[in-house]
Simulated scan of single mutants.
Amino acid sequence: MIISSSKPFSEILDMLADKESVFIVGCSVCAAKQHVGGEPEVEVMKSNLKDAGINVIGGVVAKAACSVRSCEAL
């Protein structure tokens, strides 16, 4: 069984404190089905990070982010 969960937003901001820019990668399989990393969640994260002053250069939802086959698409 695969379990996905969202990190608290404050923890994400702490992780990005010294980063110049970020690109968000979601997944259309497990994360999407559990509503923690599919298309809607990637868009919300992009918006929230931009509102927090983070330079978001883009985002994508991979077919299966955990699969080696997705690496070429990313």
Rank of each mutant, 00 (worst) to 15 (best):
M1W: 04
M1N: 06
I2G: 13
I2L: 14
I2N: 08
I2S: 12
I2R: 13
S5D: 02
S5T: 14
S6A: 15
S6N: 14
S6C: 08
S6Y: 08
S6K: 15
K7H: 09
K7N: 10
K7S: 10
P8T: 09
P8D: 14
F9K: 02
F9D: 00
E11Q: 05
E11W: 09
I12V: 15
I12H: 03
L13K: 13
L13Q: 05
L13M: 00
D14V: 02
M15H: 03
M15S: 13
M15K: 11
M15V: 01
M15D: 15
L16F: 03
L16P: 01
L16H: 04
L16D: 01
A17Y: 00
A17V: 07
D18Q: 11
D18A: 11
D18C: 06
E20R: 05
E20N: 04
S21R: 12
V22I: 12
V22S: 04
F23N: 08
I24R: 00
I24F: 08
V25Y: 06
V25G: 04
V25M: 01
G26F: 07
G26C: 00
C27P: 01
C27E: 02
C27F: 00
S28D: 15
S28L: 13
V29F: 00
V29P: 07
V29Y: 08
C30Q: 10
C30I: 04
C30H: 07
A32C: 02
K33F: 05
K33V: 07
Q34Y: 04
Q34R: 08
H35G: 06
V36C: 10
V36D: 02
G37M: 01
G38F: 05
G38N: 09
G38E: 10
G38M: 04
E39P: 15
E39V: 15
E39K: 14
P40K: 05
E41V: 03
E41G: 14
E41K: 08
E43K: 13
E43W: 07
V44F: 13
V44T: 15
K46C: 05
K46M: 15
K46W: 04
K46N: 07
S47Q: 11
N48F: 02
L49S: 10
L49P: 06
K50T: 15
D51E: 09
A52V: 11
A52F: 15
G53S: 08
G53F: 11
G53P: 01
I54K: 00
I54T: 09
N55Q: 09
V56F: 06
V56L: 01
V56N: 03
V56I: 04
I57L: 04
I57P: 00
I57F: 03
I57M: 05
I57V: 11
I57E: 07
I57R: 05
G58L: 08
G58Q: 11
A62L: 12
A62P: 14
A62W: 11
A62Y: 03
K63Q: 13
K63E: 07
A64V: 14
A64C: 12
C66L: 02
C66W: 01
V68F: 10
V68S: 13
V68Q: 06
V68Y: 01
V68C: 06
R69S: 14
R69C: 10
S70T: 11
C71Q: 12
E72Q: 14
E72W: 14
E72K: 15
A73S: 15
A73T: 12
L74S: 05
